[in-house]
Design a protein around this nucleic acid. Structure first.
Lengths: 332, 332
DNA sequence: GAACTACATTGAAACGATTCATTTTCAATA
DNA sequence: TATTGAAAATGAATCGTTTCAATGTAGTTC
């Protein structure tokens, strides 16, 4: 059915070894032979069998990428970065969606081991790291994405979320706000906890008061719920900082519906700077994470580890988030 | 380094053939042996090498999914459906992002052939179908996603976009609108062209006038641009139908900024019903496509073809879009 | 023209599973 | 006890590559 290397060898009247060399070490093949074999490869439409190829060599040219939610724009951007970087180095990427579930994650780890991926980029659903060890034992390189596990010997690419929370509050206090609502997600998500820590830290320094509103999910609907709760507060905050943009957009909708002017009466600040943020009803100020860049960096780090082997030194790279100021935040 | 089937055989004091049977045909193995071997497999943490496994058998348990844009919520949902359906049948999915570029698509096709995927789900970037033949020649099943190519013998799952455009306009004319702006994307995208055809058809029937505004990309920023152009028209339409939700959100923003009340003065209708639509400044009416369900269906169709082989009959499944009415559309 | 190089090419072994024709085992039956 | 046959287990061949030691072939030097 499929054209094999053996068929090519026969057609070109050379040995299988030579054809293999044409594919993998063209410089050792005589120019004329090279040309002839390449000609025949094209003619027959030969594509090497990845299985057989890497069965022998022991290494595949595939990576795994396990994210908690593909639908989240942050991870979609990261994935694009990973794909682009991998493509450039001729690797293919298995994209897996763990849905924040440890069980699904386990399943994927197994699948990836079975597919003999060379390395894995993962945003682990929980801190238990058995899965990671399982892979590393098998010689699969692991790089942590958007999460760090202390004391572990591995590469990681993350964002300084504490700092993110901090600059958010600094921005708001800088505008004169002293009573600020912090719409936070589940504390179990490390990013959320970190942003919260940054909020607390900056509030103490600036001597501002923080009202924490905790919601169970981080989507626009929950943002609306949060806004309702804010409206019921005894005293209305003059600024609202949300743990992500979707929450912020939900909050914004309810406030606008209640004829509250933004930013004149209340400032709103989001987090993630999703593509839609500039097009919100009132263009949303947000804390941006360099998601695409993170994907590129993480993939490059992982591939360096795969290819350098022992000489590789693990690196913890930490990106700094940045404030993107738009119309939704203003002076008190 | 890695535990092989041979190691398991040695540890369990059986032949490699028996271990293979434990994995693939447990019913032919004596219960006691079965238990002992399974025990050892677990103990050693043995995971079969996918390469070697399918090198012999000729078939892998992986699918490819090539979409034009992972960041597009429609495709993210489709991808989730595909993944879930594939998981259920113990297949893994390679997710590839062609970025609407034929060149990238070619690259991925090659990668997928190399990875020996069993089948491919694809939304082809253009109508030229050489790529598809290339795969089919190699015994890789192909199912078309969100696109149909006439006269081709293959499965496909698509949405009736003509009908989508039609029900959109019917909804608006039903509300009394007779002068409607149609914010359309590049005519080269079949979906856009089809929706436009539906628009024209329904407009003729209802005797409504359509003002077409064409933009080069389908994002919120281009929606704002379109809104500007609408504001400059001699006569203001009373309703605006946009080729997708992002455009609609952009349009909405500019209109609100210009103090135009929605839907009292102008109705806005989107397409895709993205997750954020209900949380827009004015909750957005939209035409919903059953994206997740399409993913599930497409994957099942493809896997049926893979596993049934010759007895398989190609099917063209066409989903019907549905109107989701929210606050952004109202009586004239 | 013999002795060396350097370069090109060869072909068999190996990778780790599956497959299948054989062989072994053992209980039931004559 | 001998015979039979079904069930269980075996292990060599196989898949399509890569790898590498061995071999072949010019070209250069003394």
């Amino acid at each position: 059915m499929s054209v094999s290397l053996r068929d090519v060898a026969k057609a070109a009247q050379v040995s299988v070894g030579t054809v293999s060399n044409v594919l993998n070490r063209p410089q050792v093949v005589a120019p004329m032979t090279l040309a002839r074999v390449q000609e025949i490869i094209k003619e027959l439409g030969f594509v090497p069998n990845g299985f057989a190829r890497h069965l022998r060599s022991g290494y595949s040219r595939t990576l795994g990428l396990i994210v908690p939610d593909v639908a989240n724009p942050f991870f979609t951007e990261v994935a694009r970065g990973v794909e682009d970087a991998a493509s450039k180095r001729d690797y293919a990427v298995f994209l897996c969606n763990s849905d924040e579930s440890a069980a699904k994650e386990d399943r994927y780890v197994k699948v990836l081991i079975q597919q003999q991926v060379r390395g894995v980029l993962i945003t682990p659903a929980d801190v238990k790291a058995d899965r990671l060890d399982l892979m590393r034992e098998r010689g699969i390189a692991v790089t942590l994405l958007d999460r760090e596990i202390k004391g572990r010997k591995q590469c990681s690419v993350s964002v300084d979320d504490v700092h993110g929370g901090q600059i958010a509050i600094e921005h708001l206090t800088g505008l004169g706000h002293t009573y600020i609502a912090w719409v936070s997600g589940p504390e179990s998500i490390p990013q959320v906890a970190d942003r919260g820590a940054g909020v607390a830290k900056a509030a103490t320094v600036a001597n501002a008061t923080i009202e924490t509103i905790r919601v169970s999910l981080m989507n626009a609907a929950k943002g609306e719920e949060a806004a309702q709760r804010i409206l019921e507060l005894n005293k209305m905050p003059t600024a609202i900082f949300c743990a992500n943009d979707l929450l912020a957009l939900g909050v914004m909708r309810v406030l606008l519906e209640n004829k509250i002017r933004i930013p004149e009466q209340v400032s709103i600040l989001g987090y993630d700077d999703i593509a839609f943020a500039p097009s919100a009803a009132v263009p949303l100020s947000s804390i941006a994470q360099p998601s695409y860049q993170m994907g590129i960096t993480a993939a490059d780090l992982l591939l360096d580890e795969c290819e350098d082997g022992d000489s590789h030194e693990h690196q913890q790279i930490r990106f700094q988030p940045q404030l993107v100021e738009r119309a939704s935040t203003g002076k008190r």
